[in-house]
Design a protein around this nucleic acid. Structure first.
Lengths: 192, 192
DNA sequence: CGCGACGTTGATTTGCCTCAACGATTGTGG
DNA sequence: CCACAATCGTTGAGGCAAATCAACGTCGCG
């Protein structure tokens, strides 16, 4: 719970009373490796804060291939935003890549807190703004760089992820096949 | 100004006093075709609401090629979110594709309004959530479909854009060359 | 131990790009 | 109002980045 508090206070300071209100609605969960906290067809009921471990948000296409949209490790948030806010059935999955501990808050509880603590809605606005900018940069990069360049900048941008994720997952995030990522890695090792 | 009010009230109802506060900070602008309201290196000072006309948000890569990130036509919002909130120099451009009329609000004015009218920050949170979901779907689609499939769904998803945008701009949005889009259009016309 | 996830390699194929050229349309300055 | 330039859409030949398919070795785990 301390982790959540510290993370929030990076953006905004909450009073003790405000903090009590929030903490009251937050539930701690232990999640096993490969366990899914969201499946296609379900409504995404929770916004989840990762205390420890690592998750991926992904979709499955018509051919049955998986495509990673986002990773979330320590101090990051994860949810299917579209499903969460519209209360619509999700087309995505959220799965633990490692054994993890998370804090979850339900949609209606979060909304209730928004009206009691306006600052909280701004905090969540900031969270999503940052994620939006990240996604936007990713779209731009996908359009303007080769897979090799994108892989190198992935390593630079997410060192805390790249040294613990299987290459299969990184390939899926980059939108390439694991085979091709393997070739990229080979080429890079030759160069140095 | 009526356009803005109607658009806002789709999400939230503001009182007359709240509305006065907001309207007071909003400036109307006429923008010519090809005129830029944001250039690389500038800080994005304004969140802009499109009353009439059409804009594109784009970046230029190392090779000098342009890549469209987003379009905004009537009743849509446009800004470089990253630059706007962090007050950092933008790497992007916003350009009018048609002669346009917009309503602009400055960053510090918007922030001041957030604290006076908490509902407003939630409204802007909703706006960005919707844009986030749109971007996320786009990333997924780019990974799982061919350019032809993506073009067909672009036509379906944005009929109000596809019938007024030059194909060059659509190609740039899709991340393909105009030449290849031309071939896709040819193939599609054969089929039907 | 045996199975499934993971990483790698090679041969072949394909989706899309590059470059070059050409009409048609638009728009703009003289 | 015309002439010329710029933008736009299209076509074709050739090339490259990445996918596909198949095979194989390794490792961790039930």
């Amino acid at each position: 719970m301390q982790a959540l508090l510290q993370n929030f206070q990076k953006y905004f300071s909450f009073s003790a009373e405000e903090w009590t209100l929030i903490a009251d609605k937050v539930k701690k969960q232990s999640i096993k490796r490969r366990q899914k906290i969201l499946q296609e067809g379900e409504v995404c009921k929770y916004y989840s804060f990762v205390v420890s471990g690592c998750f991926r948000l992904y979709g499955i296409d018509d051919k049955g291939d998986e495509h990673n949209i986002q990773f979330a490790a320590e101090n990051d948030w994860i949810a299917d935003i579209g499903s969460f806010y519209a209360k619509k059935a999700s087309k995505l999955y959220i799965e633990a890549i490692e054994p993890s501990i998370i804090l979850q808050i339900e949609q209606q509880d979060l909304y209730a807190l928004y009206s009691k603590i306006p600052k909280l809605s701004i905090a969540f606005k900031v969270i999503i703004e940052n994620k939006y900018v990240e996604l936007q940069n990713r779209v731009l990069q996908n359009f303007s760089s080769t897979a090799q360049q994108r892989y190198v900048s992935f390593l630079e941008q997410y060192p805390h992820l790249s040294n613990r994720l299987p290459n299969t997952q990184i390939a899926s995030y980059m939108g390439i096949t694991p085979e091709f990522l393997s070739k990229i890695r080979k080429d890079l090792s030759k160069k140095s």
